[in-house]
Simulated scan of single mutants.
Amino acid sequence: MVKNALAAQLLKAGLVDNKKAKKLSKQAQHEHRTGQNDDAQIKAKIEQDKQEKIAKDQALNQEKQRILDEKALVAAIIQMIAQHKIKDTDGDMTYQFIDESKIKKVYINQQIYNALVAGSLVIAKENTSYAFLPKVLAERINDKMTGFILVNNAENHEQTTDEEDPYAAYVIPDDLMW
């Protein structure tokens, strides 16, 4: 009994014998099996593509989440600055500092000026203006994200002088008016 219809027709016509018909049958089965192997390879390729797409999507989602977390942190820092800034700072004294390679000048009162020079207050950037904050809060902000604190004179007081500096004996006062 021949399973292949073509082989049965060839046998009936007398063009092939039983041996040749079995060989054709086996070839057909082999082609059928290899076709299934091709299907398995195709399925494996599809599965691999799915895994790559999932990994790519996860990476994109992590990047989006990181950006959202950074925006939330910036918003939280801006809110902290707005809540804790010192309000009454207007005065006759001028204090100059550097913001993005430009010299900026603010008018403040003597008490704020003394606190800035001593390092107990710092200047922070608040959107387009400047805010005066306590040093403790500035340290917390700097721990979370840098770039908001523009002037922190407490760091200048903590630095040690170089032993080889020939001008180490000459102290320049911080409150020197130009």
Score class of each variant (00 low, 15 high):
A13V: 01
Q96S: 12
K104Q: 14
L6F: 08
K12A: 10
K20L: 09
K71D: 10
L116E: 02
F97D: 08
N152Q: 01
K23N: 04
H30E: 10
V2H: 12
I46A: 14
N61F: 01
F97M: 06
L121Q: 05
K105L: 07
D17A: 04
M80Q: 14
D69K: 15
E31R: 13
L11T: 06
T94I: 09
F132Q: 06
I149Y: 02
Q110Y: 05
L133Q: 09
Q96P: 00
K45C: 03
L24K: 08
A169G: 11
Q58A: 14
E31S: 09
A13G: 07
D99V: 02
L121R: 14
K104P: 01
F97T: 04
R66K: 15
L68H: 06
V2M: 10
I149N: 02
Y107R: 13
D49L: 13
K12V: 00
D174M: 13
N37I: 08
I112D: 04
L60I: 08
V2N: 13
A154V: 00
K43H: 08
L116A: 03
Q111N: 12
K135C: 06
K20D: 03
D175K: 11
K43N: 13
I54N: 10
Q110C: 01
Q110V: 00
F132P: 02
A8I: 00
Q83P: 02
H84F: 07
K135W: 04
L133E: 09
V16Y: 03
W178Q: 09
A154I: 00
L24I: 15
W178T: 06
N4P: 02
Y167E: 10
N153F: 01
I108N: 04
A28Q: 14
I149R: 01
G91S: 06
E139P: 01
R66E: 09
Y113M: 12
A21D: 02
A72R: 15
I149W: 03
Q41K: 15
I141N: 11
A59F: 01
A8L: 10
E139M: 11
Q51F: 04
I149L: 01
E31I: 05
D69H: 11
D88E: 07
A75C: 00
Q27G: 12
L6N: 12
K56E: 06
I172Y: 12
K125C: 05
D69M: 10
A154F: 03
N152D: 12
E52A: 12
D69T: 06
D175G: 11
L6G: 10
F148G: 03
A76L: 03
M93W: 03
P173D: 07
I103Q: 13
K102D: 01
P134A: 09
E70H: 10
L150S: 06
D49G: 03
E155F: 04
N18R: 15
A169Y: 13
A168C: 04
K3A: 07
D17W: 04
